[in-house]
Simulated scan of single mutants.
Amino acid sequence: MKIKDANIVVTGAGSGIGRALAHAFVRHGAASVVVADRDEVAAMAVADEINGRACQVDVASPAAMDWLIEMAEQDGPVDLFCSNAGITVRGGTGVSEPEWERIWRVNVMAHVACAKRLLPGMLERGSGHFLNVASAAGLLSQFDAPYTVTKHAAVAFAEWLSITYGDQGIGVSCLCPGGVDTPLFRSESEARQHAMGEGLLGPDQVAEIAIEGLLENRFLILTHEAVREQAMRRARDTDRWVHGMRKFFSSVRDKEQRH
Rank of each mutant, 00 (worst) to 15 (best):
Lys2Asn: 15
Lys4Trp: 01
Asp5Trp: 11
Asn7Cys: 10
Val10Cys: 09
Ala13Leu: 05
Ala13Cys: 09
Ala13Trp: 07
Ile17Leu: 11
Arg19Ala: 10
Arg19Val: 09
Ala20Gly: 06
Leu21Asn: 07
Leu21Lys: 10
Arg27Met: 11
Gly29Val: 11
Ser32Cys: 13
Ser32Met: 12
Val34Lys: 00
Ala36Lys: 00
Ala36Ser: 08
Asp37Ser: 09
Glu40Ser: 12
Ala43Val: 11
Ala43His: 08
Met44Asn: 14
Ala45Cys: 12
Glu49Pro: 03
Ile50Val: 10
Arg53Leu: 14
Cys55Val: 15
Asp58His: 01
Ser61Cys: 06
Ser61Met: 05
Ala63Pro: 00
Ala63Glu: 13
Ala64Phe: 05
Ala64Asn: 02
Asp66Trp: 01
Met71Ile: 14
Met71His: 08
Ala72Lys: 05
Ala72Tyr: 02
Glu73Gln: 15
Pro77Glu: 11
Asp79Ala: 10
Leu80Ala: 10
Leu80Val: 15
Phe81Leu: 10
Asn84Gly: 03
Ala85Pro: 06
Ile87Leu: 11
Ile87His: 05
Thr88Arg: 14
Val89Ile: 13
Gly92Leu: 08
Thr93Cys: 11
Ser96Asn: 06
Glu97Lys: 03
Pro98Lys: 04
Trp100Asn: 07
Arg102Phe: 12
Trp104Met: 15
Val106Lys: 07
Met109Arg: 05
Cys114Pro: 02
Cys114Gln: 07
Cys114Val: 15
Ala115Val: 06
Pro120Val: 03
Met122Gln: 12
Leu123Ala: 06
Glu124Trp: 09
Glu124Met: 13
Ser127Gln: 14
Ser127Arg: 14
Val133His: 04
Ser135Asp: 05
Ser135Pro: 02
Phe143His: 09
Pro146Trp: 06
Tyr147Phe: 14
Val149Pro: 03
Thr150Ser: 12
Thr150Cys: 08
His152Ile: 12
Ala154Thr: 01
Val155Lys: 03
Ala156Arg: 10
Phe157Gly: 06
Phe157Cys: 05
Glu159Phe: 05
Glu159Trp: 01
Asp167Cys: 11
Gln168Ala: 14
Gly169Leu: 07
Ile170His: 05
Cys174Asn: 08
Cys174Leu: 08
Pro177Ile: 02
Gly178Thr: 03
Gly178Ile: 04
Gly179Arg: 00
Val180Met: 03
Thr182Val: 02
Pro183Trp: 02
Pro183Ala: 01
Leu184Pro: 00
Leu184Val: 08
Leu184Asn: 06
Phe185Pro: 02
Ser187Val: 10
Ser187Thr: 11
Ser187His: 06
Glu188Val: 08
Ala191Gln: 09
Gln193Met: 12
His194Asp: 15
Met196Phe: 08
Met196Lys: 06
Gly197Arg: 00
Glu198Ser: 15
Glu198Val: 13
Leu200Val: 03
Pro203Asn: 05
Asp204Ala: 12
Val206Gln: 04
Val206Phe: 03
Ile209Glu: 01
Ile211Tyr: 02
Gly213Arg: 01
Leu215Gly: 10
Ile221His: 00
Glu225Met: 08
Gln230Cys: 05
Arg233Phe: 08
Arg236Lys: 10
Thr238Trp: 12
Asp239Asn: 14
Val242Phe: 15
His243Tyr: 12
Phe248Asp: 14
Phe249Arg: 13
Phe249Thr: 09
Arg253Ala: 12
Arg253Pro: 03
Asp254Leu: 14
Gln257Ile: 11
